[in-house]
Design a protein around this nucleic acid. Structure first.
Lengths: 350, 350
DNA sequence: CTGAAAGCGCTAACAG
DNA sequence: CTGTTAGCGCTTTCAG
């Protein structure tokens, strides 16, 4: 309905007085065409302002030049940066990118996959929210493995049959926790990102390992689980304080929750970091803006997006290449929430 | 290549022992079909796990069930929220959304439009970066008007032939400036969002009008222009201070720049708001996080996205309905950067 | 109520 | 080197 007068390949052929296959051939460089015809076609294309119809093309060639990104949240402080890099890389290569938001609801993720299966996208970048513990997720993952669309996972390597780019979650939280221990902290609480998911699980393991390796006791009452949001971080911290256990530091599964936790601690009139030190994970820009600024583990978001697209492109072009798992390293950033002399400058790049 | 074994309408027809047109008819409810055949078709669909191929469907019907969003930045703190709302509304109605980033480069915007023209998207939501002053943009806008794809503008109403949802930019900055004047501020500087664009232009007009209406002089050396980013806000403030003119308040064209300005003022050891009061525009969540917290004008981002999609959907369904311009009102939020007793609570919803 | 057949715009054998 | 033709999977007249 929208394009009543758009020129078709037929129009071009008529105008140039050649066959439509010749037009197709010059446009796609698929066969050599004599100079005169070639020129006439190009002329016709120009005159008629012809653009090949990707829908029709896709119907034949099964190529849509579209990739799809499935993420938990479009408006979080984390994904937009990844999205942006992916978009830049993708458009360079002529791909359009479609977005899908799951809000951490597995059913929505499945719906997206189903939709995409029929929509003929050329590839999918997936930040999955499958529950790693739940045996019923096996079936879903099998399906993902068997699907005929290239898929690259980010944030969570949910299958060894799928390319993925992830963080060194466990090692990073281990580093963070160890750093707190090196500061002399002994009663270190942990506000976890949802541990039924891949990422939260591995991060928590890092915390536990660090305590163990330092001979510190693991106490259940020091561990609580949030839902990624600042608000939940605030609530978790409140609960932790209400338990009336000695706490001199908190490791938090992500920066968002850590910000909430810091606010809670401030409101309780406790000093950061003297009474309670706080460290997060991600290094989102707001973490540098608050007072005290938040120590955290850096996550190379741009790199993550770029690599994810690279992996995807490679798999599209080369479906049988070996599966790749890229694990990115994070790095400790010391700010005021663990060190009074820590960096208090604002990240102004946003 | 990706879907070798996906069932087609033909397979369903064969399995159900009916014609493909009957299958099509039951699936689209386009004609009444006898109960037995109807049931057999549904059964076949279920057994074969058939999903109709939207590409093929689109080729015939010219409908892609895809809308496209063109915005300056994917990763800014402003657009993701709008994006998110649009995505939610769109998926409810069965639309997929594709994103395009212009980085405020008009040529990129034009490229997107051209691409989309051939891609047969069902509609476009556009945050345009045309230079309102530049006469050459007339031509581009004419093209937009003539295009056969429904377009809804957000942030900038660049044509009265296009639906749009915008803020009351001028009135809002007028309010902000007036508020500062009511506080007794007399030497009020202005850090502008790029004034060659629709939005920046109108906001600046609000500042000028407020000064005029209060009988305050308009002085060029009090006005400077940034590029939306916190970094540029910092730099603009630095320049302003270097001019050695008395400044007791700054109105800033958006929150991001205002954050940079605040940092600069703090670094200069000046007191906020006593020495210099600061007010921004947008009410992004980071503005509540910094110290001092930033006074600003609220922008209903979710509403904006939802309305934009509504307008678009309406135009898709009803191409000849009258053009609508929706102007949203903002509201003053008083925080510490203008009032020592202003709200200092953190926005934890992100 | 049902099905055969003609395309949507394009690509890719296959002949010439 | 060029053109004819057969579809890709689906919708939609148009007969029956």
């Amino acid at each position: 309905m929208h394009h009543p007068k758009a020129a078709t390949i037929k129009d071009v052929a008529n105008y140039a007085k050649v066959s439509i296959s010749t037009v197709s051939n010059v446009l796609n460089n698929t066969k050599t065409v004599s100079k005169p015809l070639y020129d006439r076609v190009l002329e016709a294309v120009k005159v008629l302002d012809y653009q090949t119809n990707p829908i029709a093309k896709g119907l034949k060639s099964k190529v849509t030049n579209t990739i799809s990104i499935i993420i938990p949240s479009i408006s979080s402080v984390f994904f937009p940066q990844i999205l942006s890099t992916i978009h830049v890389e993708a458009s360079k290569m002529g791909y359009t990118v479609s977005i899908f938001e799951t809000r951490e609801i597995l059913q929505r993720e499945k719906d997206c996959i189903n939709l995409l299966e029929s929509k003929w996208t050329d590839g999918i970048i997936l930040s999955s929210c499958v529950d790693v513990e739940n045996p019923s997720s096996k079936e879903y993952i099998q399906k993902l493995n068997a699907i005929n669309i290239p898929i690259v996972c980010i944030e969570a390597a949910i299958s060894d049959k799928l390319d993925a780019v992830i963080m060194n979650n466990q090692e990073a939280i281990y580093t963070a926790t160890n750093y707190l221990i090196s500061l002399g902290k002994k009663n270190i609480a942990y506000i976890a990102a949802p541990t039924r998911f891949y990422m939260g699980k591995h991060r928590k393991e890092g915390y536990l390992a660090a305590l163990s390796d330092s001979g510190l006791p693991i106490r259940e009452e020091y561990i609580i689980e949030g839902d990624y949001t600042p608000k939940s971080g605030h609530m978790c911290m409140q609960r932790l304080l209400a338990r009336m256990i000695p706490i001199d530091a908190v490791v938090v599964g992500n920066d968002q929750m850590a910000v909430g936790a810091i606010r809670c601690i401030k409101d309780a009139k406790l000093n950061i970091p003297e009474d309670i030190a706080v460290i997060g994970f991600n290094n989102n820009f707001p973490s540098s803006l608050i007072t005290p600024s938040l120590s955290t583990m850096r996550v190379p978001k741009e790199e993550m997006g770029a690599i994810a697209f690279d992996l995807l492109l490679n798999r599209i072009k080369n479906p049988d290449s070996p599966i790749k798992l890229v694990k990115l390293n994070s790095e400790l950033i010391i700010r005021e929430s663990t060190d009074p002399n820590g960096d208090s400058s604002w990240d102004l790049n946003w």
